[in-house]
Amino acid sequence: MIALDETDRALIRALAEDIHASAGALGRETGLSQPACWRRIRRLRDAGLFRGARLDLDAQALGFGVTVFLGVKLATKGRVSLEDFERAVAAIPEVQTVEHVLGAYDYRLRVVARDISDFERVLRRRLMTLPGVGNLDANVLLSEERRPGPI
């Protein structure tokens, strides 16, 4: 684990807001010269703090008006069934996230669809046919007040 000072934290916050900010702009914001800023960013990247840059798409603008969170309880448990399920669910493009969780369900999925009938198609043809699926519990997203941001 790398030791972070306030300047490192300020750089991380600034990069979380705008990944495309120049080292000069970030340096001015944090009180560093451009070369010093680049060195800090490279040190943070080399330490593994950044997993990469991502494009944050607006699902609604792309025509995906429904988001559903699915709780999935597997009928059988074991290492093979977990791996089979994870491999199969990873191939479904409508499934945005797969989280292996502890609690009432084994997995929590975030699924996007164009509308409810499109979600029903994905549910019946893809999700319910996944290996090992026992019970499913669906929660439709009504609104999202806060998107995940920097820690």
Score class of each variant (00 low, 15 high):
residue 107 Y to W: 09
residue 123 L to Q: 10
residue 22 S to E: 00
residue 143 S to H: 15
residue 38 W to Q: 13
residue 23 A to V: 05
residue 96 Q to A: 07
residue 143 S to C: 13
residue 144 E to G: 09
residue 141 L to S: 08
residue 124 R to P: 05
residue 115 D to L: 08
residue 56 D to Y: 12
residue 48 G to M: 00
residue 90 A to K: 11
residue 109 L to F: 03
residue 132 G to F: 01
residue 137 D to K: 14
residue 105 Y to I: 10
residue 15 L to P: 09
residue 30 T to W: 03
residue 50 F to I: 03
residue 12 I to C: 02
residue 140 V to P: 04
residue 83 E to L: 13
residue 31 G to W: 02
residue 105 Y to T: 10
residue 94 E to L: 01
residue 97 T to I: 03
residue 54 R to E: 13
residue 121 R to Q: 08
residue 105 Y to Q: 11
residue 130 L to I: 05
residue 133 V to C: 01
residue 54 R to M: 14
residue 12 I to K: 13
residue 47 A to Y: 00
residue 52 G to N: 12
residue 132 G to Q: 02
residue 89 V to N: 01
residue 14 A to S: 10
residue 44 L to Q: 01
residue 26 L to F: 02
residue 11 L to C: 03
residue 146 R to H: 14
residue 85 F to V: 01
residue 110 R to M: 00
residue 80 V to W: 11
residue 145 E to S: 12
residue 76 T to L: 13
residue 142 L to D: 05
residue 14 A to W: 04
residue 88 A to G: 03
residue 3 A to F: 08
residue 144 E to N: 01
residue 72 V to E: 01
residue 12 I to L: 14
residue 57 L to V: 14
residue 146 R to M: 15
residue 24 G to Y: 02
residue 20 H to N: 14
residue 151 I to S: 13
residue 121 R to C: 04
residue 134 G to N: 08
residue 86 E to L: 11
residue 89 V to I: 07
residue 90 A to T: 05
